[in-house]
Nucleic acid binder design. Structure first.
Lengths: 186, 186
DNA sequence: ATACAATGCTAACGAACGTTAGGTAGAGGA
DNA sequence: TCCTCTACCTAACGTTCGTTAGCATTGTAT
């Protein structure tokens, strides 16, 4: 049938279900049916439903976050750069988008447990400093540097949610306009 | 005990559970236990679990949205006005905050069904025009009026989520700073 | 050939779920 | 007094859940 690893197939189907129906709304039986395998097959590769969910967040979601954060290195021109950063999210694979969406769901405490929330909080603390570092050379404003960084990060959050959570395509021009408004010289 | 009390108590407890555990993670048994009533009592007042969830969104959440939208009438000074609008969300009752949070969860398709999504989409279409109307007198910029409205609405979305979804207190100064950055004259 | 781990299955377990059948207790009008 | 209606209950229904016991098949190393 498929040369793709059964373990991965299970995870892909699970991501779809967790996304659409939440942790409690997802059943091992549904996953098994879509994967076209038996029930205990799931337990052969994953200890439990919770471990399956956990691995998706701890491994796949945070790998994705780190991959995205690693893109925040080069700087062509700050507005071009952030525009591209957001715009490229439109072209993430369906799987990555779903993992991203599921991660945001956990980040907002809409799913998952307290253990996952902890690592989400730890990650969140790194966001503002990272963007502050990138923006520092471009900011020579009065004393509201930090506020601009915060506003940009807030804006990015909504733009990312539009693409990844609401599953909309965001045109480059719209992204550029909004980022320009926050980063224009006051 | 009056019937209205019991009906309302059931709904309040239900809002808490739907918020914390999602629709599928919430059980009628848990609700009944917290309300300190029997299982069929829930069915005496609500036809089913789904009807209970539906009423919270269709009635309580949209009443809250309309109440909030009605505040968007007077305009003291546009920055003061939007700052107050957001800042006051800090002081919503716990119940209103939870209803708001649950509504956003449904709005982001993280819970609820397709029927609820429809009315969410309809509401969303009214947001940009409403704010455009309010901001029109204050916008004399080149041709990016619409982009500014869009950016402001996006920023408001994140600020509201911080307060209502992440349950954080947002200081007035921070709100004002961010709104000022978007609405300052470019 | 034989042994054995890896990979798959059928069938079932007990627990928990949403929901309902069928009642009781008490207040109020005739 | 009897009747009716509202507000509440205990106990159970059938279903589905996460999980597991136990067995079959296969590939590979000895």
């Amino acid at each position: 049938m498929s040369d793709k690893d059964m373990r991965q197939r299970i995870k892909e189907v699970a991501v779809e279900y967790f996304n659409n129906s939440g942790y409690h709304g997802t059943t091992i039986r549904n996953i098994a049916k879509d994967v076209e395998c038996s029930l205990p097959m799931i337990y052969y590769y994953y200890k439990s439903k919770e471990e399956l969910f956990d691995e998706i967040i701890r491994k796949d979601y945070f790998d994705l976050l780190k991959r995205q954060a690693a893109l925040l290195r080069r700087t062509d021109g700050i507005i071009d750069f952030y525009t591209k950063f957001v715009y490229d999210l439109n072209f993430l694979s369906d799987y990555d988008k779903r993992v991203y969406r599921l991660g945001i769901k956990v980040y907002l405490s809409f799913d998952g447990d307290e253990g996952l929330m902890k690592i989400m909080d730890d990650w969140e603390k790194t966001i503002l400093p990272r963007h502050h570092q990138i923006l520092k050379p471009y900011l020579k404003n009065a004393g509201n540097d930090i506020a601009i960084v915060r506003t940009l990060v807030h804006l990015l959050e909504t733009l990312i949610q539009s693409i990844v959570v609401k599953n909309r395509f965001l045109p480059e021009a719209e992204i550029r306009e909004e980022i320009s408004i926050v980063l224009r010289e006051g």
